[in-house]
């Protein structure tokens, strides 16, 4: 089971109570996302379905649902996210993340999983680059051994190629309740291809990640697992050439891809940190 603690700026953590957690999982929502609504039913299913044999590893996970103002530029948001990750892993500093109500909680995590949706995925990749940059300058280009560079990246519909959202189209696409009406329409329209743009910022994140991943094949955090909804029309569906091939979930949209349900458990299994285990989950 997990108990909730509130964190700064509307974020919160669901902390394992049965056994001492060994894995910190940080969830980062996307543009106009929400720390609760973006990840709907993760919060309850991790304890209900998570108690079954097939997903029992959830009992050793502490889940941190990070919150931020997505209307700000990605750069400063990335810096804040990196500070948050450093405050959580490997040993949480409760006062730094303003974990309200925790009086005593001993934690030393063995593993870190960074989970992003849409823009949140971009922020995670950008945070990894920022961390490498800072580490390289501090340690004369020698990369640190055991830290967030060992993180496992699990990205839902990463917006690494961006999207253009304006006008009434933007109003509809932004809406979690109405957006899918337009998404299904855009899916069949070649005109939508004109809506996406390669921003210099995103181009830089992509290029640097690929270059570093080739140069440092042992750094796990430079390689992400990516999953897209097959009918997602908000983002360009492509993994980086240095990532494993992307996975496409039938009938999932940009918004629904990261929301597990009783009959759609893939997101719960996808965030598992152990790479070698294939978890078969009925969907």
């Amino acid at each position: 089971m997990h108990a909730r603690v509130d964190l700064a700026k509307g974020g919160y953590g669901l902390m394992a109570t049965g056994v001492e957690a060994r894995v910190a999982a940080v969830f980062v929502h996307g543009f106009y996302g929400h720390p609760e609504k973006t990840w709907l039913q993760f919060q309850t299913l991790m304890d209900t379905v998570g108690s079954s044999d097939i997903l029992s590893w959830w009992a050793t996970y502490d889940a941190y649902f990070y919150s931020y103002d997505s209307t700000r530029q990605i750069g400063p948001n990335t810096a804040d996210l990196l500070d948050f990750i450093h405050a959580v892993f490997p040993v949480p500093n409760w006062s730094n993340i303003r974990a309200d109500g925790i009086e005593e909680l001993a934690r030393r995590y063995d593993s870190l999983v960074l989970i992003g949706h849409s823009e949140g995925a971009v922020m995670i990749r950008s945070a990894i680059l920022r961390h490498i940059q800072a580490s390289a300058q501090e340690r004369s280009a020698r990369l640190p051994r055991k830290d967030m560079l060992d993180a496992h990246l699990r990205l839902f519909a990463p917006a690494l190629w961006g999207a253009l959202i304006t006008g009434w189209k933007g109003v509809l696409l932004r809406s979690p309740i109405l957006g899918d009406l337009l998404e299904s329409c855009l899916y069949y329209s070649p005109a939508y291809q004109q809506l996406t743009r390669n921003s210099p910022f995103l181009n830089e994140v992509r290029q640097r990640t690929i270059e570093l991943a080739k140069k440092h094949p042992g750094i796990r955090a430079l390689r992400a697992k990516n999953v897209f909804g097959a009918v997602d029309t908000c983002v360009c569906m492509e993994a980086l050439e240095t990532d494993p091939p992307a996975v496409y979930e039938p009938e999932c949209t940009h918004a629904s891809i990261c929301k597990p349900r009783g009959d759609y458990l893939m997101p719960l299994a996808f965030v598992r940190h152990e790479d070698e285990t294939t978890v078969a989950v009925a969907s």
């Binding site: 009434w168 329409c185 069949y188 329209s189």
Partner: peptide
């Protein structure tokens, strides 16, 4: 507003679904 939006019309969006 949605029905007379040129961009949405070009995409074939049907306001009746809304």
């Amino acid at each position: 507003n949605v029905a007379y939006d040129d961009e949405l019309a070009g995409l074939g969006f049907d306001p009746s679904s809304l």
